[in-house]
Design a protein around this nucleic acid. Sequence first.
DNA 1: CGGCTGCTTGAATACCTTCAATTCATGTGG
DNA 2: CCACATGAATTGAAGGTATTCAAGCAGCCG
Lengths: 241, 241
Amino acid sequence: MIANVSQSTSTHPSWTSQAVQPPSLSAIDLEALRRELPVTRRKHAAGQYLYRSGQPFRAIHLVHVGSYKICDTSTDGREKVTAFKMRGELAGVESIGLDAYACDVIALEDSEAWDLPYPAVMKAAVRIPELQEQIHTALAAEIRCDRTWMLLLGTLAAEPRVAAFLIDIAARHARLGYSAKHFILRMSRLDMASFLALKHETVSRALSHLADLRFIEVQRREVRVLDVDGLRAMACCAQAA
Amino acid sequence: MIANVSQSTSTHPSWTSQAVQPPSLSAIDLEALRRELPVTRRKHAAGQYLYRSGQPFRAIHLVHVGSYKICDTSTDGREKVTAFKMRGELAGVESIGLDAYACDVIALEDSEAWDLPYPAVMKAAVRIPELQEQIHTALAAEIRCDRTWMLLLGTLAAEPRVAAFLIDIAARHARLGYSAKHFILRMSRLDMASFLALKHETVSRALSHLADLRFIEVQRREVRVLDVDGLRAMACCAQAA
DNA sequence: CGGCTGCTTGAATACCTTCAATTCATGTGG
DNA sequence: CCACATGAATTGAAGGTATTCAAGCAGCCG
């Protein structure tokens, strides 16, 4: 059995290098932000909405505790999880320039987000060019992150796709100072499958096979990484069918 | 045979509503931009690079004539076309905040782009809050466009995917005042396939079948749309396998 | 004209999905 | 406190869709 999920600082430096860069504002800026902006904090239980498609867009949101999933819906009702957001990452930036939010954001666990009123952000940005720069950078990073996943989903078969997902989650945990070798997946297999453009049975099978290969140990949502290089080799080399 | 590719203004208003919104700066801003910025114009023949991954990032680029493809490459060499850019659309925004461009951009035909030096853009943005707003909006629109395609590629089977692509291209043509019912695809089947996460044979078969259904006429890169609603029904309703 | 590249089409295969059954964890009510 | 209902995850077998491999055709440029 797998136990003792630690939050110890990762000692493996290479984790950070391979990650799909998650867009975020650094801790330094946050201090400035809190001074400059009327930040309000909101807590959400698992399953609760941070915002819903169609609600008036007024703020962007910085995840402070927990994690959220971003869900896009087409006009005819097809849905897909297009991103997961963890501490330090931004939600809502995709809706800038619109009157209403363009997607749903749902907490995966007990979570907290800081609302940054968009007009206030804009006003602050005029006064603080560095903030301006940071916003551009965050938005651009978001685009690069999406493009990286488009590339991944478009060129990798199911199993390497799942491997790449685990590597990404692990790297993001490491960035936050948590263990990259042992973590809890906060999303269901269904959410993972949606994000990876697979069926949940396929995700399940892929995880089982990665465990058979001794690359990971997995028990429901608890994952222990046994062979990072094995995972990497699978995520990088295997082609799509 | 299909002939007489016109550039007449589209008279079908519904074309514009369904499109995957392409990020762009409106014509109004362009006038301001030209006054404020040291814009330089560059021409490219088909196959030439607007910029390459690794080159120092200095400017964002507004497509003024022709069209380009955006190609992302993974560390291990897998490649994918992640976007196509037409007149009025921006390239290079994904590289904001980096020292070097993050992807390749290649002309699909004789094309011209305006280089907007990024530092100058930033300085102008400080003086002109509207420009600031426009930049945010353009970046956010880019994110939404990517998300929409992630959703499409993740939830639609091959044939509806191709149908959705044709609808998108048609809508973007309409927006530019060209015919939405008759146009030339500027990219190869290989590029389309890469963008749609399919093989070029599959794209070819899908196009042939759409022609069998009398939704379109197609001859190599020349496409004539016969039944928009048929295409729409296919793009919206059919689920992924 | 010849060689080349891009596109199309066919047949066989492989991979993921679909359908179905089982196990496991959780929480609710008797 | 246990029984039971519920939802999530796993696993097996059958099937379908896109891919792979292969061949042929058409346009284009030297």
